[in-house]
Design a protein around this nucleic acid. Structure first.
Lengths: 368, 368
DNA sequence: GTCGCTGCTGGTAGCGCTGTCAACGTTCCT
DNA sequence: AGGAACGTTGACAGCGCTACCAGCAGCGAC
């Protein structure tokens, strides 16, 4: 063969094989399964590849092997802090592995998700990470028919497609409300924005806890489909106060809203927590730094992303986890914004492991 | 040929061509350059593809055409809010185009960036988006030798590799300090974290403005290499106060730090802006909502990402922009946290277009 | 009427790699 | 000693698509 290089001047596997004095297929094996080679050839190929600065052509590999080394990730938003933490975990876990991440934004639309899923699946990804448990029937069918591992993240539910990692937003919201009850609060408002399925389940948890205590009233709930923001938190709180001035606590569906409520309280000289207690959700970094410090429900977002990607890669490589559904739990982090009425400082409530899954199954009305 | 389908059951271009009654190569052309086909064949191929649900095999396309439809993006952090806005812009602009985004995280290391660059370039990306202007000499050489369009984002400097979009952090910092001068402040502290090249240039801008006014003192500057956070803002501010209790304003290298300073002031009953003025950087959403509202330097992050990706795609397709270096400018958004001393409410300072580039060239000490 | 041009179409030959299967040498067992 | 079993290696034939070039018709110019 006359040519030594590809047109573009790149080093090919054949050159590496030639320098190492082995056949191309042996060199190929070195990169896919080094243990299959004798030590002598292995070192020869290794040094030849290094000397030539060989980088495999992924397109050729994908074409020949009929599969890619791409992990598809479908998330609903790039703006939301919550997802950037999850993504960081995913990227961290994929780094150093042979897999690369292909990210797409569903913009909270399950129709868009379905479209993207079709696109992804057509390229035969090595694995797929999808957000949540509320896919369309069509999406669900495609996922079940897919011949790659799939992991659903952000929450857990009774019918995993394959693997699943998250926590129960329903239980977490109930725990937050229980915490407020324990502090002596009764007229607890709910403030929520965006109202995606997970926020909706937080609302469901709040409603059920309030109903259990015979304290639920529809006018305590203020929500909007608008994307969340700190400013919006203030605005929703203003609405809430107008509907029910006697409120003594607010449970916010996320921390941005909580910060907005805090600022609005300050603007109106409402003391926190004396006049109104505030509880957020997610426990973003600033919550511990605010004045007063803000109570929140801690969720393990980075760990969720990282573990999801790690589990997925393990599964891709044939080592399926013995525990395909992982409940990462949550923890109510009690801070000044909700701890005045009682000096009571007993340990905060915590979400269980597999227990929460069972609890969810026992409460099917909230997960369909 | 006997087989009608690929092993995996996927529809191939050949099937589409057969159904449309044209040759495979004609069908292929339909997807790459529909105008080259006669109207009759075009519609035939189109409906055949639709009927069969054909999805092209990107790996085969990449292998045969020696190029991919991937835009590589190298950013230093996934945590930082600033980058999530930029990324959102990039993803939004790429959506609907044929290009997909391949993201990698350099973790603020130019050595890591060099390594990733080598990896990316080996796969022949259609284009590349890199952060900043501080690449290693090796990276720089690779970028200049690359046969794809490249755009540097986040800041502008005198020697673009190819295209460039951003603003002058140096000028923006000077404008922030000038604003504080105009409000009558003199003992202005600087608080910075992470100290990546762009934060460093903000510090340089602060230093030069302070020196111009003969007000610079080293002890007014508190920085750390630690990643930024709200809590850290408070801690750095405490340091600053310990070094110089007479301070009357703080310029924070970003908004998280500014929020931390605000909370720390509240904790210590320091009134803002009466006793100490605060100015942040980036103008994140919460700045307008805080109590008092916080002055900040607005930067067009989403627009930067969006425009960068749009310009890059245009360049990939052969339509190079007539203006390869774009200065998006900045704007000092004056709010309560820095506007008490004077009731002066004249228009805020704004970063110019190409002017800022020239200014940077005139100040080479800050860009090497 | 011939030539060359343009617009459209098709055939051939790979792109660089890997799946499959066969073949080889060696070891270990009976 | 013969044979099975294993570990290791290589030949062949594509993966699905596109670059390149050739061919063909239809047209206007000379």
């Amino acid at each position: 063969m006359g040519r030594k290089r590809t047109k573009s001047g790149k080093i090919r596997l054949a050159e590496v094989a030639e320098l190492a004095g082995v056949s191309p297929i042996t060199a190929s094996r070195f990169f896919r399964n080094p243990e299959a080679l004798s030590v002598a050839k292995r070192t020869r190929v290794e040094s030849a590849a290094k000397e030539l600065g060989y980088v495999p052509n992924l397109a050729a590999r994908a074409l020949a092997s009929q599969r890619t080394e791409v992990i598809g990730v479908l998330i609903p938003s790039l703006t939301n802090n919550v997802f950037s933490d999850v993504l960081r975990g995913i990227y961290d876990a994929s780094e150093g592995s042979r897999y690369s991440i292909q990210l797409s934004n569903t913009r909270y639309s399950i129709l868009q998700e379905e479209k993207l899923l079709r696109l992804f699946l057509a390229q035969k990804p090595a694995g797929l990470i999808v957000t949540g448990i509320d896919q369309t029937a069509e999406s669900r069918a495609m996922l079940e028919a897919a011949d790659c591992p799939i992991i659903q993240i952000m929450e857990i539910g009774p019918h995993p497609v394959d693997m699943m990692i998250g926590f129960s937003h329903y239980d977490a919201a109930r725990a937050a409300v229980a915490h407020l009850f324990a502090q002596g609060h009764r007229k607890i408002g709910f403030v929520g924005a965006r109202m995606d399925p997970r926020v909706q389940r937080r609302l469901d948890g709040y409603v059920s806890a309030m109903k259990d205590a015979a304290l639920f009233e529809q006018r305590l709930v203020v929500t909007t489909a608008t994307p969340t923001s700190v400013t919006l938190g203030g605005a929703l709180f203003v609405d809430l106060l107008a509907r029910e001035p006697e409120i003594d606590a607010v449970f916010c569906a996320n921390d941005d809203l909580a910060l907005g409520v805090l600022f609005e309280c300050r603007r109106r000289d409402i003391t926190v927590p004396e006049q109104i207690a505030i509880v957020g959700f997610n426990d973003l970094e600033f919550m511990a730094s605010a004045v007063p410090t803000l109570t929140s429900v801690r969720t393990n977002r980075y760990e969720m992303g990282r573990t999801a990607a790690t589990m997925l890669i393990e599964a891709i490589e044939g080592r399926r986890p013995e525990q395909p559904v992982l409940d990462l739990g949550f923890k109510v982090i009690e801070r000044q914004s909700s701890s005045s009425r009682h000096a009571d400082s007993r340990p905060a409530a915590a979400g269980a492991g597999a227990g929460a899954v069972n609890k969810m199954v026992a409460l099917p009305s909230t997960h369909d």
